[in-house]
Design a binder for these strands. Structure first.
Lengths: 349, 349
DNA sequence: GTTAGCACTCAAAGCCAATGAGTGCTAATT
DNA sequence: AATTAGCACTCATTGGCTTTGAGTGCTAAC
C-alpha cells in the first residue's frame, strides 16, 4: 500500500464518514447521502452535522457530487485516502485459500500453464479482468536449446531460459533435416548462444555466426532465424489475460469496455499498466494514476511474484474504481505468493 | 450456398424489392421504406405499387416491420432467400487478396500459428469475430513422440500428430531424468502408442502399459500421465478465436456481446457452431438456424479448409445478421483455401 | 395491374409539471 | 465553538401531453 501524495490529516470523524461513504458506494454503486449515513452508521450526530463534514470533505477534494441533488461519491483522491489509511487489512479467508489452491495445481511444471491458471483463478474469484506477465528476462540467460526433428524438413526448436520460460518455434528448412545440420546447430548454439542473455541475441550476432558458416549458411538460415525470433520473444515480457468479458458487466465501463479489452490484450500497454515498485506489496493504481485514457474510472490492483527471492513478474486485476479493494487485495496477494512458490518449485526441480 | 427450406418462388419484381431492401438495410442499418425504394432504385412504378408488393412480402414472411410507422427490414427468412438466390457471387478483390496474403506467411511451418494468423486476418478484414478449429483428429494418428530433457526432473514431451498438430507437455518426474527413463519411454511409446489414433490413448491403455512396467511404473507415471493428457487434447478439436471485441461495436448485440464472447471462447459450443456440411462451399447459418439463444440476431459464415483433399477443419466469422454477406463470403472462402494450402505445404514438407 | 390520395398509426422528440432526494445556509441551541 | 432544526433551493427523474413526420394500408379511379 503506497502512501498518497499529500499527507493531509483528516479528523477521525471525517475519516469515518469517508470510509463509510467509500464502503457503501463500493457495495451499492449509488451516491451516498447524509441521511443514510446518519441512520445507518452509528454517528452520534444529526444529518446536518454530517452534511457539514461532507461539504468540508468535498471542499478538500475527497468527495464529489454527480449533481446537486445527489449524494456524494468518493473522488479518486478519496479512494486513495481510503485504501491508504482507512481500509481494513485482511488475510484471505480459508474458503478463498481453498478455492485458489484447488484451482492451481502445485505440481504443474509448465510456467506458461501456471501463469494461465493464476490469471483464470484471479479473474474468476474477483470478477474482474486478470493480467499476468511472464517472468522478466532481465538477468536471465539461455540455458539450453534443443532441436526436435519432426520428420522431413521440419524441426522444432526449444529454447529454455533460466527464468523458467520455454519458447519453441517450428522451423522449415530448405531441405530434409540431416544429422549434420542438427549437430552443426548444437555446436553453434553451444558456443555462441547458450549462457547468454536472450536480449544479447541480436540480428547482428546471428548474422556474424551465419557469415562464419560459409556455404552451410544457406542451409542453416531458417534455424538461425527461428532461433533469433524465439530469443527475441524470450527477451520481452509477455502478458496473459483472463476474464476480459467480466469487464462488460460493469456499468462503469459502458461503451468503453471494448477499448479496455483491447488495451489489456495489447502486450506493451498491459505490461506498462502493471509496472510498479517491486517492494513485495500489493499496489493499487487508481484511475488517472495509470496515465491512460481508457482507465480513468478503473483501478489496477497488482502484486509482483518472486522467484528465488527476486521479483520477476507481476500479476494483477483490472476493474472499476469502485471495486471491493478489501476483498480483492488478499486474493491478489495470495495468488502472487502462490505463483512465486510454484515457479520456485520448478526452478529447483 | 445451401438452398433454403421451402422453395417459394417470388416474382422477379418481388425479388428485386427484397434484394434492394436487404442491401440497403445491410448498408444503413435502418428500416427501408417504400418511398426510398421508389426514388432510389429504378423500379418504373410508384411507391404505392411497391407498398403492395412489400405488404405481400411481409405476408409471406420475408419482411418484417419494427413498428407500424417504420419501413421494412428483412426477416431471417428474407435474409435466407437473399443469400440463397439474390445475392451476387463475387471473388475477393485484388486488394483483399493482397491484404490476406501479406498477413499470412506462406512459409510458416507451425500449424497453430497458421490458424491463429488466419483468425486474426479474418477478424480484421471482416470486422467480425473470427473462429477457427484445429484440424479434426478423426483419421489422424500419432506420428512420433519426442522427449526433451530440460535439466533436472523436467522433461518436455512433444506429440506429433499426422494432422499437423503438435501437443507438448512439460512433465516433472519424481527424480532426475535419466537416460534409462527416456529410453524406456521411447520404447513404450514406439511399440504401444505411435501410429495409433490419439483417441485410442485411453486411461485404460496407459494403465495397462504402466502395469507391465513393474517397479519402473512409479518412475514413469508422470510421463505416462503427461502423454495421456496430451493425447487426449490431440484427440479433441480446439478452437482459436480473434476479434472478439469487434462484437462490442455492433448495436445489434448491445448487452448480449459478453454472452456471445463467452460462447465463442467455449471450445465445445464454438465447435458446434461451425459444424456444417463439408461440401467445400461457404455456409451461412442465420440467426435461429444456429439453435442457440445467444445467436438469434447473429449469423455465422463458415467454410471448411482441406488438407490433402479432405476437409479437416473449419473456420468462420460471427457477426450480426445484417452483415455484408457479399463482401464477407469471398474473404472467408479465400482464407479457408489459403489455410488449406498452407497446411498442405506443411504436410508434404 | 397501377396509382393518387387520404386517413391512420406510432416512434421519437420536445415540453411541462410534479416528485423527491439531497443539499447549503442560517439562525437558534447547547 | 460545535451542533442542529428548519427551510429554501437545485436538479435528475418520471410521467403525461402534444407535435412531428415517416411510413403504412386502403380505396377508388385510371
Amino acid at each position: 500500500m503506497q502512501k498518497g501524495g499529500d499527507s493531509v490529516e483528516l479528523s477521525e470523524r471525517k475519516e469515518r464518514i469517508l470510509a463509510t461513504i467509500a464502503e457503501t458506494y463500493i457495495a451499492t454503486g449509488e451516491p451516498v447521502g447524509s441521511k443514510f449515513l446518519c441512520m445507518r452508521a452509528g454517528f452520534g450526530v444529526s444529518s446536518a452535522t454530517i452534511r457539514n463534514e461532507m461539504a468540508a470533505l468535498t471542499e478538500l477534494g475527497f468527495l464529489e457530487q454527480p449533481h446537486t441533488s445527489a449524494g456524494r461519491i468518493p473522488s479518486q483522491k478519496g479512494f486513495r485516502y481510503y485504501v491508504d489509511h482507512l481500509m481494513g487489512q485482511y488475510d484471505p479467508s480459508p474458503v478463498d485459500i481453498f478455492r485458489i489452491r484447488s484451482r492451481m495445481d502445485f505440481n504443474e511444471g509448465d510456467t506458461q500453464r501456471v501463469l494461465a491458471t493464476a490469471a483464470n483463478t484471479l479473474a474468476e474469484l474477483t470478477g474482474c479482468a486478470a493480467v499476468i506477465t511472464t517472468p522478466f528476462a532481465a538477468g536471465s540467460r539461455i540455458m539450453r536449446t534443443d532441436l526436435v526433428p519432426l520428420g522431413g524438413k521440419n524441426v522444432m526448436m526449444v529454447l529454455s531460459v533460466s527464468n523458467g520460460m520455454l519458447k519453441s518455434r517450428i522451423c522449415r528448412c530448405e531441405s530434409d533435416v540431416s544429422y549434420e545440420m542438427l549437430d552443426l546447430f548444437y555446436k553453434i548454439a553451444g558456443s555462441g548462444f547458450v549462457q547468454r542473455s536472450p536480449d544479447e541475441i541480436t540480428t547482428a550476432l546471428v548474422q556474424t555466426v551465419a557469415a562464419s558458416l560459409g556455404d552451410k549458411a544457406f542451409e542453416m538460415a531458417p534455424m538461425l532465424a527461428a532461433f533469433a525470433d524465439a530469443a527475441k520473444e524470450a527477451a520481452s515480457t509477455d502478458v496473459l489475460t483472463a476474464g476480459l468479458s467480466n469487464l462488460l458487466r460493469f456499468r462503469d465501463f459502458e461503451g468503453r469496455a471494448g477499448a479496455l479489452q483491447d488495451l489489456l490484450r495489447n502486450r506493451s500497454s498491459a505490461v506498462r499498466l502493471l509496472t510498479t515498485q517491486s517492494d513485495g506489496n500489493v499496489h493499487i493504481h487508481l484511475g488517472t494514476e495509470n496515465r491512460c485514457r481508457e482507465l480513468v474510472n478503473a483501478s489496477v490492483v497488482c502484486a509482483g511474484y518472486s522467484v528465488d527471492g527476486r521479483e520477476t513478474g507481476v500479476l494483477g486485476i483490472v476493474g472499476p474504481m469502485r471495486m471491493d479493494y478489501a476483498g480483492v487485495i488478499p486474493l491478489v496477494r495470495y495468488t502472487a505468493a502462490l505463483v512465486g512458490a510454484m515457479l520456485d518449485e520448478n526452478m529447483h526441480n
